[in-house]
């Protein structure tokens, strides 16, 4: 079962998570331990990377229009900064006493804090990216809601012109997202729903065209044609709602899928 829900987050955090776990085990197994080496340089490298992340993070917060990102990201940055301070303190303490137990504990706490803070930050950023895809999905849903008021060929042409680019964008972004997910069931659900949307869209347009033609001829069958069109628009909407639901899943609760 994967721990991280996207391949990008996994590739960034998994190696360091393994290193930290290993250090914790080593620390527990060798409680007295050997003398710690001078960690000033590697700690300085972490501190520099943290300063850069905080700078980049603040710039992201300032330029973003996503209120949730603005709300959540500062706490993650503070967490990373606090963890870096713990590492600096540990390094200073180990310089004085390379066997210091409190320093070792600080070192582990700091490394864990960096891992957790970076993880929170990546999650904030990822959720914001997901919200962008969801906005695109909702735009398509808005267009689908308009399908039942289209009664002329001119309006249908405009409808297709409006819907096509949004649908292409949703298709590209959801496809990319599904490839990014580490959870196979989520990935397959996104692919299946997206395939349905892509299959249904030309059929919907065709049903709208048939409805308009029947309406023009003042035939009684227009009710049936409208029903068929509404059914197809409804099916597409259902698939898009399912895409939105799965896009927001980040947990691995298998019970949910039972």
């Amino acid at each position: 079962m994967p721990v991280f829900h996207t391949k990008t987050i996994e590739s960034i955090l998994e190696p360091v998570a393994q290193q930290v776990s290993r250090l914790v085990i080593l620390h527990e197994e060798a409680e007295d331990g050997n003398a710690m080496p001078d960690l000033e340089k590697p700690v300085l490298a972490v501190s520099r990377a943290v300063v850069n992340l905080v700078k980049v993070g603040r710039s992201t917060i300032e330029s973003s229009e996503d209120s949730l990102l603005k709300q959540d990201m500062p706490a993650a940055l503070l967490r990373v900064e606090a963890a870096a301070r713990l590492l600096e303190e540990a390094s200073s303490m180990l310089k004085v006493d390379p066997y210091s137990q409190p320093a070792r504990k600080k070192l582990i706490e700091g490394a864990r804090g960096i891992l957790q803070g970076t993880s929170s930050l990546l999650l904030c950023f990822d959720e914001s990216e997901v919200r962008k895809i969801i906005r695109e999905c909702k735009t398509v849903l808005d267009y689908l809601a308009v399908a039942e008021v289209i009664e002329t060929m001119e309006d249908l042409i405009q409808f297709v012109k409006d819907l096509s680019p949004c649908l292409t964008k949703v298709s590209r972004e959801v496809d990319h997202r599904s490839q990014e997910l580490t959870h196979q069931v989520h990935r397959e659900t996104l692919t299946r729903c997206l395939d349905s949307v892509k299959t249904l869209s030309p059929i919907l347009i065709c049903s709208m065209k048939i409805f308009i033609q029947i309406l023009r001829q003042h035939c009684r069958e227009s009710d049936e044609a409208a029903e068929n069109r509404n059914y197809l628009a409804g099916r597409m909407s259902d698939e898009l709602h399912e895409i939105i639901r799965v896009l927001q899943l980040t947990t691995y609760d298998e019970d949910e899928w039972d």
Partner: peptide, 29 residues
């Protein structure tokens, strides 16, 4: 994205630090 690159740098630096700290302990275990 720049923020992903910044996170990668932190992860790499932390990994190197933890590895350096772990090496001394490993000798004892």
């Amino acid at each position: 994205e720049i923020i992903l690159e910044a996170c990668k740098s932190i992860a790499a630096a932390t990994g190197a630090l933890v590895k350096a700290a772990g090496t001394a302990q490993r000798e004892l275990v």
